[in-house]
Structure formats: C-alpha cells, structure tokens
C-alpha cells in the first residue's frame, strides 16, 4: 500500500483521559520522509494520537496509554527507554508558538547546547544554518540577540521550527501548526514543510481540508477516537472507501 518504508507503526494503541477513551485500538503505519496528515472533526483524537508519538500525551494528568508505538522498530512505550531521546527524535511544532524566554540566537542554540550535538565554536554557523532552513535568517540576522518574544507570531512559529530542527530530529510532528497564523505566515510554514519533506518524516494534524489536500502524501481520517480510513492522499480524497470519510470530505459534518 505504501511506497516508502514505514517509519512509525502503532499496534493496538489505546489512550485514556481518566475514564474517557481518547484513542481506540489504533493500528497505523506512517511512511518515512513523506507528509502524513491526520484529519477529522474536532474531538476525534487527532491531537491525542500525535501526542502519543512523542510521549507528550502522558504530560496531562490522569492519562494512561496501552499498546505499542514503534519508531524504527523500537517500542517507545518500553519502560526502559529514555524519553528525552524519543522527544529529541520527534520534534513538535505546537498550535501556538512558544518562544523560550531568551534571545532569538539562544532559542536556536538551546537544543544544541542541551544535547551537545555541535561543537561550541561552530555555534554561530549552526544557528544561522537552522534559521536559514526555517526561512527566518534574513529577517532576524541583525537582531539575533534581542528577545524572541519581540518577533511577530508568524516569525515566532518559524523560530520554533528552527529551534526544533536544531536538535536534528528525524520526525516533525505538527499540531495544527498554522492555525494561529495569518494566511501569509501559514503559507510560509507550509512551503517550509514541503521543502523539509525530503529529509524528515512529517506528521501534521489539521482541520483544514484544503491544507491537507495541498500538503498530504498520506492521510489518516479519524472519527470518535478511531481510525476510519488511512492511505494515499489521492485515494482517500478522490475515492474514499468509508461512508463517514465521504460525508466528512463533502462537508456534511
């Protein structure tokens, strides 16, 4: 079904908020170096599924998860695994940008310093490198040491992208990363993600169908905590198999 080899697989994944089951027996495959988009009406578990992939789901109180999430064949819910390694491998672009309370430069250097992934003396070079990839360098090169909070929200989201890329993840998770942005900033982020597809496995949650049509190689359609349909984007969009998918795509709900 998928042309690319799988990067992430889930087997019988269940997730609970207290007694409420947010995810019901999810078994999906996410291919490497493609854009996979999770769509569905609000409250269907899109974000919960995304947050299970970098073990963010458990940050909310009273949650529990059963089942497996295999990244490169390794179960990230294995108790002996190092959570920080999981999160380093799967960067998250949140709905709203949260610049860290430091300068633009330090935001990008933050992860590099924490993980010692680059030598200290090359820091300037790498900060510039990741800001360039995120398409922010030209706008901030003269004020690298001013606080990141002074940037516009669109610039902040690109800074968050640069900051996430700086820890050299293999996977980029995006939780409606453009929903707080104006159309031009959103377009800017979208084109960055398309550029990055060749090097990263990208998984995006969105409620904007048109955005999914523009970006997705693969689509996962969710409804009430279950995966209803998953597959190649053109197949799901043009020939949906399940009637719920058809109804959702035609705007019935």
């Amino acid at each position: 079904m998928y042309s690319n080899e799988p990067h992430i697989e889930t087997n019988g994944l269940n997730a609970y908020y207290g007694n409420i089951q947010a995810l019901k027996n999810i078994s999906i495959v996410i291919p490497r170096k493609q854009i996979t988009m999770i769509i569905g009406p609000s409250g269907c578990g899109k974000t919960s599924l995304l947050k299970c992939l970098n073990r963010f789901f458990e940050l909310s109180p009273n949650t529990s998860v059963t089942g497996e999430v295999l990244t490169d064949g390794e179960n990230i819910y294995n108790p002996s695994i190092d959570i920080t390694e999981i999160r380093k491998k799967a960067g998250l672009l949140a709905q709203r940008p949260y610049p860290l309370p430091m300068s633009i430069y330090d935001n990008v250097a933050y992860g590099i310093r924490i993980h010692h992934t680059r030598p200290r003396r090359e820091m300037d070079h790498w900060v510039q490198h990741y800001l360039e990839i995120a398409g922010l360098w030209e706008e901030v090169k003269d004020r690298l040491h001013s606080p990141a909070n002074n940037l516009s929200i669109g610039q902040q989201q690109r800074l968050c992208l640069a900051r996430g890329l700086a820890v050299e993840p293999e996977i980029i998770l995006g939780d409606e990363p453009t929903s707080a942005l104006d159309p031009i900033s959103a377009q800017n982020i979208e084109s960055r993600l398309l550029d990055l597809k060749s090097q990263y496995t990208i998984i995006l949650v969105t409620h904007i169908l048109r955005q999914a049509r523009r970006l997705a190689d693969y689509v996962i359609f969710m409804y009430l905590g279950e995966v209803i349909e998953a597959g190649l984007a053109e197949q799901v969009f043009n020939h949906p198999q399940h009637e719920r998918t058809q109804a959702y795509l035609s705007g019935v709900f």
């Binding site: 970098n54 940050l59 933050y110 820890v167």
Partner: peptide, 22 residues
C-alpha cells in the same frame, strides 16, 4: 503556560533542564 514547558520538553530536555532554563 504549559505550552512553554512543553516547548522545552519537546526538544528532549529533562524536567530539571526545563525548570532551570525556562
């Protein structure tokens, strides 16, 4: 904001690093 802590944790930092730097 919880989002600020998560922004740091998402980069693979420990809780203590997040407390200290953020």
């Amino acid at each position: 904001p919880a989002g600020l802590r998560q922004a740091s944790l998402a980069l693979g930092t420990t809780r203590w690093q997040t407390i200290k730097y953020v």
